[in-house]
Design a binder for these strands. Structure first.
Lengths: 338, 338
DNA sequence: CTGAAAGCGCTTACAG
DNA sequence: CTGAAAGCGCTTACAG
């Protein structure tokens, strides 16, 4: 079943069928009605391979998502879809494998679907080099600051990783904590982890707390089991620790389980806080204290920045949106900072 | 940049370039080496629209996933990919929107990618009608029993929803619970919810427990907030209830939060159990008592059944895999069943 | 082993 | 408003 079949049955040429499908106004009422009827009858769906192969016009805004199961991305994507539609663009989401190269993928998507712009979620900055510019369309990195990449066509929208992490350390300090450990990603690969660690280090130094990354920073994959294992290692090397700051809520969940499996209560014995502010954090017991990345705000700013780059051919923008420290119940106030 | 450009630069015809790309053996060493070199140089990626438009050969096994954030599906998909590869097929995953019609989508995928077979995850049985057979390839419904659909080419692999739900009720009964409420999906739309309810009803009746679905069954979306709201309604209409069985772990998490927000402890005041056995269930406190759907087993059986249908042109198979009741810490043993 | 050519199912100027 | 035709970038018999 192709438009040729539809055309024959409807008694029109394939061009006319194509025009009907694409809502081209240059079609008579009669033709449109008749062709639509036949399309309905066979439940016809045009072949998008053929469509995209031929079509010069764009398909809207592409969103390339690395990591299907990232709970922070789900609400961001949802909101971005809405915003794209509202602005007259169609949003198209491409989920790619954790190990795929998103820039190669973007190159391909550009050739095949000719989007007006691309938004990257969960991207590994390793793959981002100057030649991203060759894509010829504005790009935006979501939830990661890209100002240092110096890629001309790459904007970004994110919270201030440095300031927000520092803020959490200050909060823990104000709550009386002095022996604090961190759980984050591999510093060689995870750019946000590096920024957040930088923020923590600054705060530690301002507060006069010693911090030795070699023993107090546990690196982990951004998973529950990653957080679990990192926590176990930290427990061995950091006797007497009173608080742990994990750079994602998911890792914090793993850390909490590890603590409890070692007979420690949260927060009575050890306080735990996370990062992201996913929905789940608020369903846990204790509710997780965390840095909330504002999904709606990130989404709407991201889309609107990208659209400005597309329509006004504007320069790349690196925007910081406000984070929010959400006080849950997972951090205990200590009587005296000992 | 197309294969034409590559061909020109390499000094061969496009046909030869195509053969190199597709690992066709009928190419000389020299040609292959030279062409690969040029492909490398430009980081060339063939246009898959053109490829698929032309290609008669199949692209492997398609997996159509409804609901990106289903935590049960992630490990199943991972394992299915591995199994497909091991069997010499390539697995291709298509994520579709909650509101899309997966059968229409399947129709399109068949025309465009010509898969040997299709596996559906998270599908809404409403869309499954006899004309699925028109797709002309074997299909398989994952985690839902499809024997009653009477669709010739549709196999299924699932746990026994009726027996497993009944088992959970018997377990709760054995633990001393008599006032039990259920949280499940919309019975008009969710086939597994209906089966699980059937199982529960059978168990209630065998155990001599009265059960009134109108007041003791809370229907909800399969989300945390769905579980939360359903729990709140059940609390009002079921004073004195001692246990809740939610038909998904995610809903159970919502239910637990609702109970606690109403000042009730889990499991001391109210016991809660779930269904699915997702990784997260084991990280919660208390660990969730649940029916584990064996992701690896489902995946490997599903793939192998589908492949048998493909290669031996076999009839559809409806296979039940064993569930496992995982005893967590979320169900309290009551002294006397009052 | 290699090339020339047909054709996959669409879209889109170009005429009329 | 409609049709005939070119062409998107590939793959694949068909010759040689």
């Amino acid at each position: 079943m192709t438009i040729k079949d539809i055309a024959r049955e409807a008694g029109y040429a394939v061009g006319t069928v194509s025009r009907v499908i694409n809502n081209n106004p240059n079609v008579s009422q009669a033709a449109r009605a008749r062709i639509l009827e036949v399309i309905q009858k066979y439940n016809f769906q045009p072949n998008s391979n053929a469509k995209h192969l031929k079509q010069q016009a764009s398909q809207g805004i592409a969103m390339i998502v690395k990591g299907t199961h990232n709970m922070l991305f789900a609400p961001i994507l949802e909101k971005m879809q809405t915003e794209c539609t509202a602005a007259g663009y169609s949003g198209m989401v491409y989920y790619i494998d954790e190990n795929d190269n998103e820039v190669d993928r973007a190159r391909r998507i550009c050739r095949e679907h000719k989007p007006y712009g691309i938004i990257f979620l969960g991207s590994n900055s390793n793959y981002f080099t100057r030649d991203l510019n060759d894509l010829g369309v504005p790009c935006l990195l979501m939830t990661n600051m890209a100002v240092n990449s110096e890629i001309e066509n790459l904007s970004s929208v994110s919270v201030d990783d440095i300031a927000s992490a520092a803020r959490m350390i200050e909060y823990l300090h104000a709550m009386g904590h002095r022996r604090i450990a961190l759980i984050g990603g591999d510093l060689k690969r995870s750019h946000p982890s590096t920024s957040r660690l930088t923020g923590c280090l600054g705060a530690f130094s301002r507060l006069g707390l010693a911090f030795d990354p070699a023993v107090q920073y546990g690196d982990a994959r951004f998973t529950m089991s990653g957080g679990y294992k990192a926590m176990e290692r930290l427990l061995e090397t950091n006797p007497g620790l009173t608080a742990v700051f994990a750079f994602s809520d998911i890792m914090a969940i793993g850390a909490i389980r590890a603590l409890r499996d070692h007979g420690l209560r949260v927060p009575e014995d050890v306080s735990v806080c996370g990062f992201d502010g996913i929905e789940l954090a608020d369903y846990l017991t204790p509710r997780l204290t965390t840095i909330r990345q504002p999904a709606d705000r990130l989404a709407s700013r991201g889309v609107s920045i990208l659209i400005r780059c597309i329509e006004d051919d504007g320069d790349a923008v690196h925007e910081i949106v406000p984070y929010e420290l959400v006080e849950g119940e997972s951090v205990l106030r200590l009587e005296s900072g000992k």
